[in-house]
């Protein structure tokens, strides 16, 4: 196993951790953090797999896609945070309503 696969597995771990936190946490800020961790896991898998070129220069196409993804992630995060603030201003809670209590 090379270092590329080590990092790819860490990426899979980050994705799973983020998915778990996304499900179990009720607070929306925590859900946004969890989504960011999941995204970073995907980026790590992409860049790690681009490193499988041996001694040669790594594949530049996944690098470019990840740079694009980082900028898209930050703008989506900003939009999600604004939605959360609006929800909290309207309802007083930064959480989604719990289905089971209704």
């Amino acid at each position: 196993m090379s270092a590329a696969f080590l990092y790819a597995l860490v990426g899979v771990g980050l994705f799973s951790l983020g998915l778990y936190a996304l499900i179990v946490h009720a607070h929306l800020l925590r859900k946004i953090l969890a989504l960011n961790v999941m995204g970073n896991g995907v980026f790590l898998v992409l860049v790690a797999l681009a490193r499988r070129t041996g001694e040669a220069r790594p594949d530049a196409v996944p690098h470019a896609m990840v740079i694009t993804g980082i900028v898209v992630a930050v703008s989506a995060t900003a939009f999600a945070l604004t939605l959360m603030l609006k929800l909290s201003a309207a309802t007083g809670r930064a959480e989604l309503p719990d289905d089971r209590r209704e």
Partner: peptide, 21 residues
């Protein structure tokens, strides 16, 4: 199982791939 499946898929990829470089 989701994490294990993803890990298996990643590890089953060929160890050398130049992609589009």
């Amino acid at each position: 199982p989701v994490a294990a499946g993803l890990g298996y898929v990643v590890l089953s990829l060929p160890p050398d791939a130049v992609g589009l470089s």
